[in-house]
Design a protein around this nucleic acid. Structure first.
Lengths: 407, 407
DNA sequence: AGTATATGTTCCGCGTTTAGACAAATTCCG
DNA sequence: CGGAATTTGTCTAAACGCGGAACATATACT
């Protein structure tokens, strides 16, 4: 039961029905391709005539194309299959992280073209923008066969105002109120969209075409790395919040008297489960203190820690198990607060999922209010899926498929 | 940017535009009444002809009625004013709480008719249903002038499945998987809707016609009494969650090593700020322990504590200030997690708002991630507004005004 | 070759918005 | 007092899009 906002509504015009059905048709082609006009009509419960008209409109806009006629199952005329038209178009996704920046090229369906490339992140914004522009141009020139680039999506680890194209605050990059979108768009001559990386990850799951991704209700994406990013999806839409900061479950406390967090508060979930927290636990000291780290700790990653744990290092295993327990306790907060249909987890720690899952589960059950909550589906998203990059791509590729604003 | 769910969408039919515009018109009449057809057309940016047709449909359904012609401002024909038709119809709202149960009668706009009555809650479900039915019948018979009752809405302090009409778990009433709706509907011969009381409070704010209620973005209602109930509103819709348990911020921890909570876990927000927690702090012992309380503590309420604090009792003030601080720390979690446009707070503790606001604010700022977050609007909803009862009423009165499901 | 069946197109009916004309009602002003 | 200006509300025709059915096309089975 949704209330119509009496100060911001959209009246249905003469073309509104068409607009709605057009988008539905486009989405069904996206998720069911290859598909015939007749099947589309059946899926939509409309007459073939209506489906045909919608299809011809989409064809004339080059959003879809007619492929070869398919094999008929029984007797009767063979169907002509329809596909999303991703020929000669591509999208670039960029993931800016504290240490390295990654670039991917995909088609409009989000299918990867070529390889993921990366380079060291320069924290000087202007320098980074120029280097990004140079590399993206280079990639597009090298792979001419991928066609024209429709746009560039950028995931940023920090607070972002996508409407204004500004990074409001990115602690790990020491950026504050930086216009990232417009200079990059000017340098490239291509439209650019930016978004917070936690929300981008959530976006990637929403818009994924894989069948194992839930399509209804709410879901949550938890990304554990240097920090903890959370993206919340409600009714097929990423929750943005009044100031674009919704989803900061990383700074909801486990214990307000707990360890110091980079945000200035104490006992945040992030201070228990971030990679730095896990490593600190292993080395038995507070690595968040701003002092020169010795070479061992500086180059030692969570993946290394997990390798040691798998090799039998009891101290490493203890550190990881501790993180697992806190991970579960924090997930319980999310589940109690939002009761999502599913939780996705990404980040380096998930490479140890087979080791830690029982501990995460039991910690989760310890604090969830109901049995249902404790049994909430948890899906691990491996790093190879590049959720941040795919989310960045969705920033550009998804709007064409979005539901029209109505009522 | 909302994704269309390819497994559960609604195609636009021939009458869909009309349905949308009809609901918009109805809502505008609700919020702007008295209003003329011409003004309605202007608000909707449609021709007067369309507005007239929509109005005549609403008139024929008796959802609105034509009042007296209004005074014309300048020259020209005088407008005929339109009103929501709430003549000879009423709605009953019921608020079941651990100790007492309250009943209100309102019109379709949620305007109170008569007085709020109450009686002691009998935890035996069958007995309570019979007594409720008897009292509601009595009230409707006594106030014949209020007209026919369109339905009964019930707010329950616990986990509710509104679709099935069942109370899944209500700890304070010791109910588990109880069918509350159907027996009450049968006993009354009137449709009944039930809902969790935290969500009902949120519903009351969404559907309030008062102009100071925000209509866009998300908001959160926090109700502090025996327990802590939270209702989350996103895009004009109450967040329900996969198992109808979304909004349990009361069981998100402040400190996992904190005091024992009634839910079985430790350190929940509720264990710090519920009325029982505040009183326990004052009396210096754990009142949650299931032992016979002495007469003083049994009859002593948070209101009494606030009275003592205002009278200069330093211990009482300290207890309240402590609760205020924890209230602010917990609100920070909600704001970090959801970044709502506004937070509403209800419950007995709010009668001391003038005392505690600075403390709540500073605790809030202490843990919010951004300045914006720390400055989030907080609105106190006084007990006289009966948010739970008004939410219960909205369960019945609001569906007629809800946005149609589209796309 | 004829029949059955499925796909895709075309045409008309009907509901809804869009645009504009018109009557009714009321005030302003000479 | 009467006409002009203005506003409200209704009505009609046109444009647009869904709903339904007929029709042409294409294929397999008998």
């Amino acid at each position: 039961m949704r209330k119509i906002n009496p100060h911001d509504f959209k009246v249905a015009r003469r073309g509104t029905s068409r607009e709605i059905n057009r988008q539905i048709a486009l989405n069904l082609i996206r998720t069911h391709q290859p598909i015939s006009r007749a099947d589309l009509a059946r899926l939509m419960s409309v007459r073939r005539g209506v489906a045909s008209l919608l299809v011809s409109e989409l064809l004339s806009e080059s959003l879809i194309f007619e492929g070869a006629v398919g094999e008929s199952v029984g007797r009767g005329r063979r169907p002509t299959f329809l596909y999303i038209d991703s020929r000669q178009r591509c999208v670039v996704g960029v993931d800016i992280r504290a240490t390295r920046t990654y670039i991917i090229v995909t088609d409009l369906m989000g299918r990867q073209l070529g390889v993921v490339s990366s380079f060291q992140t320069n924290r000087e914004v202007d320098v980074l923008i120029q280097e990004l522009a140079r590399r993206i141009k280079q990639i597009l020139a090298d792979y001419k066969e991928v066609g024209a680039c429709e746009g560039v999506g950028v995931a940023v680890p920090g607070m972002v105002d996508p409407a204004k194209g500004r990074v409001l605050h990115a602690p790990t990059l020491s950026w504050r109120d930086v216009n990232l979108r417009d200079p990059l768009a000017v340098a490239l001559g291509i439209p650019v969209q930016i978004e917070n990386s936690g929300k981008a990850c959530a976006l990637a799951q929403v818009w994924a075409t894989r069948s194992d991704v839930i399509a209804s209700g709410s879901s949550v994406f938890v990304s554990v790395s240097d920090g903890v990013g959370v993206g919340i999806v409600v009714n097929g839409e990423v929750l943005r919040g009044r100031h674009n900061t919704a989803g900061e479950f990383g700074h909801v406390p486990l214990s307000i008297d707990g360890p110091k967090c980079s945000c200035g508060a104490t006992g945040c979930w992030e201070a228990y489960i971030s990679n730095l927290a896990t490593l600190s636990r292993y080395f038995g000291r507070d690595l968040s203190e701003p002092r020169p780290r010795d070479t061992e700790t500086a180059s030692f990653s969570v993946e290394d820690l997990i390798a040691r744990a798998r090799a039998g290092d009891a101290k490493a295993l203890a550190a990881i198990n501790s993180t697992a327990r806190y991970l579960g306790l924090g997930l319980a907060s999310i589940i109690n607060a939002l009761d999502p249909g599913r939780v996705y987890i990404g980040g380096e720690i998930t490479t140890a999922w087979s080791l830690i899952e029982p501990i995460v589960r039991s910690a989760l059950r310890e604090r969830t209010l109901t049995e249902f909550g404790g049994a909430t589906e948890i899906h691990v998203v491996p790093a190879e899926d590049h959720p941040r990059l795919r989310g960045a791509v969705a920033l550009v590729a998804a709007p064409a498929f979005a539901a029209p604003m109505v009522a």
